[in-house]
Amino acid sequence: MGAYVVRRLFFSLFVLWGAVTIIFVVLRLVPGDPAYIMLGPDADQAQVAALRAQLGLDQSLIQQYATYLANVVHLDFGESFRLNADSMSLVLQRVPATIQLATTALLLSLLIGLPLGVIAALRAHSWVDRAISVFSLMGQSTPSFWLGIVLILVFARGLKVLPSAGSGSWAHLVLPTITLALPFLAILVRLTRSGLLEVVHEGYVQTARAKGLGEGIVVLVHAMRNALIPIVTVVGLQFGALLGGTVIVETVFAWPGVGRLLIDSIGRRDYGVVQASILLVATIFVLINLLVDLLYGFLDPRVRLAGD
């Protein structure tokens, strides 16, 4: 297990370095002076000069990259000119709200998605399965920003049972959670169904039946433990889409998280905050995937014991 963990840790660091580098490259690839682009047309010469100096734009590209890396390592994304505060601390203030939203959405998805997937697999090709498949397809295809608006129309403006925007109470969390969870939940249903269908004809499932175990144990213990192995990997990757979705959902519901800050900062051309938010979300995603990789090793002894 030790070698496996070290390998995954290194890969995570490598990916983070890659993400940081992509941001650097994109900033330099965009035509025009990065300082000018980042500040916008209404910036005065003094501001542009200040930013040029901060980015080290008069140095060579390699020196710029080194300066940039050093700043990133120190979590230094500069001052936000608009909000007069350190960019990274602005972002960090918003992190709890985003994590709260993402976690409740993840829990809701697991709580509904896994059982629906199991039911669909057990009743494969029946009308129940078809109904669940249609629901899953609709969930994956419905634009979240539109779903959010419809939910606001129905539950906030129509029925007046839930708040349409803002945060502060559990009621505020309901609509954003549903909106954020639906696409992820839909994918989870699909993955669970196909994962389970792939293992139900395996020899060990037949063995479990031959052992006289109840159907519940056969499916939920013997089949599911194996089906979970590929599910967990894809769920980790799809979690990126869920994190990306927070940007839209936070915008629709005025939820005070990193995603909304990102969009607001783009509007204010506050690129230090933009970089800090994107890197922070990317870091959360990388950490989640590291966790998933470790979980994968825990679930599959063949992976865990391979290095030993």
Binding site: V15, G18, I22, G244, G245, I278, A282
Partner: peptide, 12 residues
């Protein structure tokens, strides 16, 4: 690397 980076964030 790119797969490990939510694509909508890169796009944004």
């Amino acid at each position: 690397i790119q797969l490990a980076f939510p694509s909508i964030l890169l796009a944004i």
